[in-house]
Design a protein around this nucleic acid. Sequence first.
DNA 1: CAAAGGGGAAACGAGCTGCT
DNA 2: AGCAGCTCGTTTCCCCTTTG
Length: 211
Amino acid sequence: MQLRDIDLNLLVIFNQLMIDKRVSAAAETLGITQPAVSNALKRLRVLLKDELFLRTSRGMEPTPFAQQLAEPVNYALGTIHSALNQQTSFDPATSTRTFTLAVTDIGDIYFLPVLMEEVMRTAPQLCISTVRNTAVSLKENLEVGKVDLAIGLLPQLQGGFFQRHLFKHRYVCMFRREHPAASQPMTLDLFQSLEHVVVISAGTGHGEVDT
DNA sequence: CAAAGGGGAAACGAGCTGCT
DNA sequence: AGCAGCTCGTTTCCCCTTTG
């Protein structure tokens, strides 16, 4: 397929559908009507010879081909967006720009000191501002550029954003020295039989471990 | 100026949910 | 189990804009 054969706006709609998983929601986000998105999807289905999205009780589920397409399309649209909106080139050594990071408490404690050390060395005039990534508006803030980067377990950002796996994280159990569990190996059954405290905090994944 | 294409409105249909 | 109501995607038709 040649690029001239495809309306790039169809890829914008495809990208939004990957995010919203609903035609009407994508239409609202893009500022067009739901039939318009439906028609665009129809044209895209014919062009790409794939259903792309299947209607299910959970919304419009992307086909394997659509999932395969999602990342390169998102990357390409991001590149085009950056190219059209760049005003000046970025020079870390002289830039006085403020970057806003959405992080968890562990982000503040662990990442910031490491980051600030590097920033002091390579971009001394840069300003780093942080916000908690527990905010329900994180997705919107990222989309409009109020937040530049978010670190954490953020399933609400699965589609439409650049993502990178940073590290693997394991948990440990803590209990008093005299606790009955101290005399035997910790197993899943033993763990489940004991009372324990889990600090549920959005963006940390602690609740996922308990589940 | 005619043809083509895209968007909006209305109608329709499928699937889900709650109630009896 | 069956029905009604609701939500949401699709289809059809019409209008407007663009293009050659």
